[in-house]
């Protein structure tokens, strides 16, 4: 059905998508994880309340989250050019992906950490743990299963975002789907890219669920 050139294109698209998704996820967590922690810690019921900072951060995150990703990516083109020298291709796409996903991840991390039993945090404080120790030794380890599940959701969301950037020449499977499927009406090629995307999402989600279950000592 497909000639070798097309197959090679699929292979490359797959690798590009994977590359964008994984690198962006890692970088977005570098930003989003601390942000999520700060949101929980500075909450009015948190271990180091700072209502002002909490509110400012919350507003910034909500603002970024409410901008549709494609519009954010277009708006960020100058920034992307400044950092990577181009606005095209997978590496350039990492810039808007990280900025678009970090606030989302911050909220995911926030909700995971808020699940941690307040009593356990109080117990650690009663033993003389500092806020930093409470974060590292209690909140993050106790929330681990939930954080892993959240990571699976985040990674698949980022994969979806990365496919959207196909509209602006972002590379990867989304790019192929749009160029061949949308502009050239080659529905078969579009279908194959969609199937590959579905499989990747399934695999990431399954890995996340298994890792979370494996590390969870509550059952």
């Amino acid at each position: 059905m497909f000639d070798p050139a097309i197959l090679k294109m699929f292979g490359q698209g797959f690798l590009e998508s994977l590359y964008m998704t994984l690198v962006s996820s890692a970088l977005a967590y570098l930003l989003g994880l601390p942000l999520g922690i700060i949101l929980v810690v500075t909450d009015k019921d948190g271990i180091k309340p700072a209502p002002g900072l909490n509110r400012v951060l919350g507003v910034i995150i909500n603002l970024l989250r409410s901008v549709p990703f494609l519009i954010l990516a277009v708006t960020l083109i100058p920034v992307t050019r400044f950092i990577t020298g181009t606005s095209l291709g997978p590496t350039a796409t990492i810039v808007p992906l990280v900025i678009g996903a970090a606030p989302f991840i911050a909220r995911m991390v926030e909700s995971s950490l808020k699940e941690v039993d307040k009593g356990v945090i109080e117990a650690a404080q009663s033993m003389g743990a500092s806020p930093f120790e409470v974060i590292c030794k209690v909140m993050l380890p106790e929330a681990r299963p939930s954080l892993i599940l959240g990571a699976a959701i985040s990674v698949t969301t980022i994969l979806g975002y990365s496919a959207m950037t196909g509209f602006m020449g972002g590379g990867g499977l989304g790019d192929i789907a749009i160029r061949y499927g949308y502009h050239r009406y080659q529905t078969d090629i579009m279908l194959v890219t969609v199937v590959i995307l579905v499989i990747i999402v399934q695999v990431f989600q399954e890995i996340g669920i298994r890792l979370a279950r494996l590390g969870d000592k509550r059952k």
């Binding site: 039993d117 117990a123 009663s126 299963p145 509550r218």
Partner: peptide, 12 residues
């Protein structure tokens, strides 16, 4: 200090 709900670390 000990508590009504024990407050043990569930992942340890």
């Amino acid at each position: 200090m000990i508590f009504q709900q024990f407050n043990l670390l569930m992942q340890r």
